[in-house]
Simulated scan of single mutants.
Amino acid sequence: MAADAPTRPSLRERKKAKTRAAIRKAAYRLAAEHGWEAATTDRIAAAAEVSPSTVARYFPVREDILLTDEDDALLEARLRARPAGEDPLESLRAVLLEAVRTAFAEQPEETRLRARLTETTTETGRRLTRVLAARTGRAPDALEVRVFTAAVLGALRETTAYWAEHDRTTDLLPLLDRTLDTLKGGPALP
């Protein structure tokens, strides 16, 4: 077998992938039928025929079922395959647009549901968007203002995760300031 030939996942890895998929499918079905709030961990576990502790082991926070993606490794590989000197935003644009096209082609209902369910977590962004839209003379739901606000809030969430992963030993405020500087200029290429 060639050194760079793909290896088949082990039986254990395949079972874990099946369990994750069953949990995710049960959550989507429950949310579609009864709403996200009714899709409790216990109900998801029962529908997936696993224990609540198994759901928690695979998805420590219930919302992770919606916010994580089984194709993360594929996205990473596709991003690595992009030209090294390409602008980071253009690389991400190419990879993410292809991922969305594929998701709508292969799982249109799940993709729509994920989009709908994530709307419930955006109230802060909507409030800030309305203020920024008014300041810039745009409509209260202008796409560009929504995207900008969501990007800032997403970057701040990622910075908080980074801070937590590094034992919370540094002051968070300078990290948040550094994050906003990164958004202003983008990551520099070497």
Score class of each variant (00 low, 15 high):
residue 112 R to I: 15
residue 85 G to A: 10
residue 106 E to D: 15
residue 158 E to K: 13
residue 156 L to T: 01
residue 78 R to G: 13
residue 139 A to T: 00
residue 135 R to V: 09
residue 74 L to P: 03
residue 155 A to K: 05
residue 172 L to F: 03
residue 182 T to V: 15
residue 149 T to V: 15
residue 120 T to S: 13
residue 150 A to R: 13
residue 117 L to F: 15
residue 123 E to G: 07
residue 91 S to I: 09
residue 166 H to K: 05
residue 127 R to F: 10
residue 169 T to L: 12
residue 123 E to H: 08
residue 95 V to L: 10
residue 161 A to V: 06
residue 92 L to K: 06
residue 134 A to S: 10
residue 153 L to W: 09
residue 99 A to M: 11
residue 171 D to S: 11
residue 180 L to E: 00
residue 165 E to C: 04
residue 114 R to A: 11
residue 83 P to V: 08
residue 113 L to V: 11
residue 174 P to V: 01
residue 143 L to K: 08
residue 182 T to L: 15
residue 93 R to D: 09
residue 100 V to Q: 01
residue 110 E to W: 14
residue 101 R to F: 12
residue 179 T to P: 03
residue 146 R to K: 03
residue 164 A to Q: 14
residue 154 G to K: 09
residue 104 F to E: 06
residue 172 L to I: 07
residue 74 L to V: 14
residue 126 R to P: 06
residue 158 E to S: 08
residue 150 A to W: 13
residue 145 V to M: 06
residue 129 T to S: 03
residue 91 S to N: 12
residue 113 L to F: 10
residue 98 E to S: 11
residue 135 R to Y: 10
residue 132 L to R: 04
residue 165 E to S: 04
residue 102 T to S: 05
residue 140 P to I: 00
residue 115 A to D: 04
residue 118 T to G: 04
residue 144 E to T: 03
residue 113 L to W: 10
residue 148 F to V: 09
residue 165 E to H: 03
residue 143 L to D: 08
residue 152 V to E: 12
residue 96 L to V: 10
residue 102 T to C: 13
residue 108 P to D: 11
residue 92 L to C: 12
residue 107 Q to E: 12
residue 123 E to K: 11
residue 152 V to N: 01
residue 154 G to A: 12
residue 154 G to I: 00
residue 163 W to V: 02
residue 86 E to I: 02
residue 167 D to P: 05
residue 157 R to F: 05
residue 93 R to G: 03
residue 157 R to T: 09
residue 115 A to K: 05
residue 174 P to L: 10
residue 109 E to T: 10
residue 149 T to S: 05
residue 137 G to N: 04
residue 124 T to R: 14
residue 135 R to K: 05
residue 129 T to D: 05
residue 80 R to L: 08
residue 101 R to G: 06
residue 145 V to H: 02
residue 81 A to Q: 10
residue 76 E to I: 09
residue 106 E to P: 02
residue 147 V to P: 06
residue 103 A to V: 01
residue 176 L to N: 13
residue 108 P to C: 13
residue 117 L to I: 11
residue 167 D to R: 10
residue 125 G to P: 00
residue 89 L to R: 06
residue 91 S to R: 15
residue 85 G to N: 07
residue 103 A to F: 03
residue 169 T to K: 14
residue 112 R to M: 14
residue 137 G to S: 01
residue 178 R to V: 02
residue 164 A to Y: 08
residue 161 A to S: 04
residue 171 D to G: 12
residue 117 L to Q: 05
residue 103 A to W: 02
residue 79 L to F: 15
residue 113 L to S: 07
residue 168 R to M: 04
residue 130 R to D: 12
residue 149 T to Q: 14
residue 87 D to M: 05
residue 170 T to D: 14
residue 155 A to H: 09
residue 139 A to L: 01
residue 89 L to G: 02
residue 114 R to D: 02
residue 74 L to W: 12
residue 177 D to W: 11
residue 131 V to L: 15
